[in-house]
Design a protein around this nucleic acid. Sequence first.
DNA 1: AAACAGTATTGACGTGGATCAAAGGGCTCC
DNA 2: GGAGCCCTTTGATCCACGTCAATACTGTTT
Lengths: 244, 244
Amino acid sequence: MKSVIPVTVVDIKVACSQCNLRELCLPFGLDPNEIDQLDELVGSRRKIKRQQHLYRSGDNFEAIYAIRAGSFKTDVILEDGRDQVTGFQMTGEVLGLDGISTEHHSCNAIALEDSEVCVIPFNRLEELSRTVESLQHQFHKIMSREIVRDHGVMMLLGSMRAEERLAAFLLNMSQRFTARGFSPSEFHLRMTRDEIGSYLGLKLETVSRAFSRFQEEGLVAVQQKHIRILDTPGLKRLLNHHSA
Amino acid sequence: MKSVIPVTVVDIKVACSQCNLRELCLPFGLDPNEIDQLDELVGSRRKIKRQQHLYRSGDNFEAIYAIRAGSFKTDVILEDGRDQVTGFQMTGEVLGLDGISTEHHSCNAIALEDSEVCVIPFNRLEELSRTVESLQHQFHKIMSREIVRDHGVMMLLGSMRAEERLAAFLLNMSQRFTARGFSPSEFHLRMTRDEIGSYLGLKLETVSRAFSRFQEEGLVAVQQKHIRILDTPGLKRLLNHHSA
DNA sequence: AAACAGTATTGACGTGGATCAAAGGGCTCC
DNA sequence: GGAGCCCTTTGATCCACGTCAATACTGTTT
C-alpha cells in the first residue's frame, strides 16, 4: 500500500540540475532553463535491489531509465535457455532504448547491485524533445552511441581472441570509471566471471584463466572482483598487435 | 556551384510519396501531407557503383541514407587490418546512424552491387521531426530497431555454433526478402562467403562447409550465390533445439 | 573463344577454447 | 559469527573451427 509522502530534501537533491551525472546523461548540452523542463518530466525514481529486474523481455515499453546509482546488465535469452549478456551499464547511462522499436522490451535489465534509476516516460520525452532542440540532439546522440558501442562488441566477438577480448573489456571499464571520477587503474567489478564470459562470448573458465595469465605477466593484479591495472600500455598492445 | 534544375519525371518517380519502399522506410506512418514535407527534405539521390564506398569511417557526418535500390555492407576495420562486417543492408533500410554520436562516421558503408540512396540531411531531418510527430517517432523506431538487431547479432556471435549462425542468417535474409515482395525461399546473395563469414564470426571455409552440409541434409539447394531454401522448419529447428 | 582473376569447394591437420572435474575461498543470510 | 552456497581457480582432455593447401568453378575482359 502506497501513501503520499511529502517532498523531502532528498527529492530536491536528485533533480537533474543538481545531479553530478548530468554531463554523462540526458541533460548534457542543455541550458539551466531547459534542464528544469527535463526535471519536470522525470516522473519518479525507482530503487532496484541487487539481482532484481528493472524490466523483462516482453514487458510493455513506457519509459527509458537513467541510472542514478549502481549498475546493471542487460541480457537476451533464447528459447533453449542459452543467454547472452548484451551490455553492462553504469551511472549516467540510459537503459530501455531497445523497447522503442516494438513498444515492448526485447531484453532483460537486471541490477548488479542495489541501484536507483530515474524513470523518463518516453512519450513525454518525445514531446519535450520537439520543443527543446538540444534535448532532441542529445537523445539522438545517446541512441547512436549505443549503436556504435554494439558495433565494437561485434568486432570483439567476431574477430578477437580470448585475451584480446578481456583486455578490451578491462580498458573499456577503466575508461568508464575514469569518466565518473574514479581511478582508471583500480576498481571493483560488479559482475561475475560467468557474466563477463557471457558478454565476451567465452566460458567462465576461460575468463578466469585469462585473468590469471594477465596476472602472471604483470599486466594486472586480480583479487576476485577487485582489479588493479598495472600496465595499461601492455593491455593496449595486446589489442592492436595481434601477434598471429 | 549548384544550379537550379527543373523537376523531371524521373525526380517525381522517386519521391517518397511514390516510392514502393515507403512502408519499410522513414515515411512509414506519415499521412500524405507529411510525406510531402519529407519529400522536400530529401535533397538528392546518389548512385554508388558496386564496391564503392557510400561513406568511410572518419568521414564527417552530415546525412543519413535510405537505400532506394541495391544493397550494402557496413564494416569496421581495426588498426592491425582485421575487419568485421557489422551488417548487410537492403532497400528501404537506413544507413549512417552510427555517425550521429560523434559527428563522424564510425564504420564504412560499401555497395554490394550498383545501388542508389536517398540523401537525408540530418540537421533538416531533426528540424522536421520537431514538427512532424509521426516522423519523429518513426525515426526513433528505426534507431531502436538497429539496436535490437545488433543485440541479435551479439547473441549469434556469442553463443551459437557455426551451423546455427548460418541458419539464423539464411532465415533472416529470407524474411527480409519476403518483406520486399520477393520469394521467401529462393534468392540471390549479393555478398561473398568471406563477407558472410566476417559477419558471422567464421572463416569463409567454415561458411562453405556449412552450406555443403545443409545441402547434404536437404535443407537448402546451394548454387554459388543462388540459394533455395527447401526446409524452413528444419533450419528453425537447428536454431532452437541446440542439440548439445 | 581464350585467358584471367576472383570466388568457392574440399581435404588434411593443428589449436584455442570448451567441457568435465575437483578443490578452495569468500559472501550472504540467518 | 557461523553455515551454506555460490563463485573462482586450476588441471586434464576433447572437439569445433581455423589454417594451410590444392583444385574447380564463374563471370568478365579482350
